[in-house]
Amino acid sequence: MDTEAGVFHVFGPAGLALVDRALDELDRLWERTPDVPSQDRILFALALSEVTTNIAQHNDTADVVLSVDVRVTTDTLRACIRDTAPPAPVDWDAVSMPDEAAESGRGLALSQAALDEFTHTVGALGNTWVLVRRVDGQRDTDG
């Protein structure tokens, strides 16, 4: 795979418009990397959408900036998402699917289920979210 074919970067105010840009870029990336199995594409896109949407919805101030870097290799789908928001308080031990009647609160739980690695760190400049899904063609046939 051409290294440049499997990479994109978007950057800007942390709003839903940037989320849409990131997902549009991901669609274009899939066109350039046709060997990625469909199940891996779908679940990685779901996680990327959930995390970036959460950041946008919980940080609606114009001064919060969101940066999304995605890299696809033959083995791995990886996103590094950085925001300049205050530290996001995430209790990873308490992340779980809410009951069926809940209207929100599924994003982190869905992302955890879709990814092989999902980390969040806080630094002096904001939050960093790393999403990793290993590419495995057997997952499509295993169901």
Rank of each mutant, 00 (worst) to 15 (best):
T73I: 10
C80Q: 08
E100V: 15
A88M: 12
C80G: 04
E103A: 05
D69M: 06
A109K: 12
P89A: 11
A94G: 02
D91G: 03
P98H: 06
P86F: 05
D99S: 12
D75Y: 11
D75N: 13
D93A: 15
G107A: 15
D83A: 10
W92C: 05
V90A: 11
V95A: 03
R106N: 07
A79N: 01
D69V: 08
T84L: 14
R106H: 10
D99N: 14
D99H: 10
S104D: 09
V72P: 06
I81F: 04
C80F: 02
D93S: 14
P98A: 01
T73K: 07
D75V: 08
P89Y: 02
D93N: 14
A109I: 13
E100G: 11
A79F: 06
T84H: 13
E103I: 01
D83R: 01
W92F: 15
D83H: 09
L77G: 02
V72S: 13
L108G: 00
P87K: 02
A79Y: 02
D83C: 13
D83M: 06
W92S: 02
G107T: 04
G105A: 06
I81P: 00
T73G: 10
A94V: 04
A85G: 13
W92Q: 05
A102Y: 08
R71D: 09
M97Y: 15
C80S: 11
A94M: 05
V95W: 04
P86N: 02
V70G: 00
T73Y: 06
V95H: 03
P86E: 13
R106W: 10
P98F: 04
P86S: 10
V90K: 02
D69I: 02
A85F: 07
G105Y: 06
T76Q: 11
A109W: 14
A85T: 02
S104R: 04
L108R: 03
A85R: 05
P86G: 05
D99G: 12
L77C: 09
D93M: 06
E100C: 03
P87Q: 03
P98S: 07
D93W: 07
A109H: 14
R106F: 15
A109C: 14
R78M: 14
T74K: 12
A109N: 14
R106V: 09
T74W: 07
A79W: 08
P89T: 07
W92N: 01
A79R: 04
T84V: 12
V90L: 15
V70T: 05
D99W: 09
L77W: 01
T76G: 00
R106M: 09
T74Y: 06
D91L: 06
T76S: 09
R82C: 10
D93K: 14
T84I: 11
M97N: 08
P89F: 04
R82N: 12
A101G: 07
D83F: 09
S96I: 08
E103S: 07
C80L: 13
V70R: 00
S104G: 06
P89L: 09
W92V: 10
M97W: 11
D75M: 11
V90H: 04
M97V: 10
P89Q: 09
A88Y: 09
D91Q: 04
M97H: 15
I81G: 02
E100F: 13
G107V: 03
A94W: 03
E100N: 12
D69P: 00
A85M: 06
L77N: 03
A101S: 13
L77M: 11
L110R: 10
T84R: 11
A88V: 13
V72H: 07
M97D: 13
P89N: 07
G105S: 06
E100H: 12
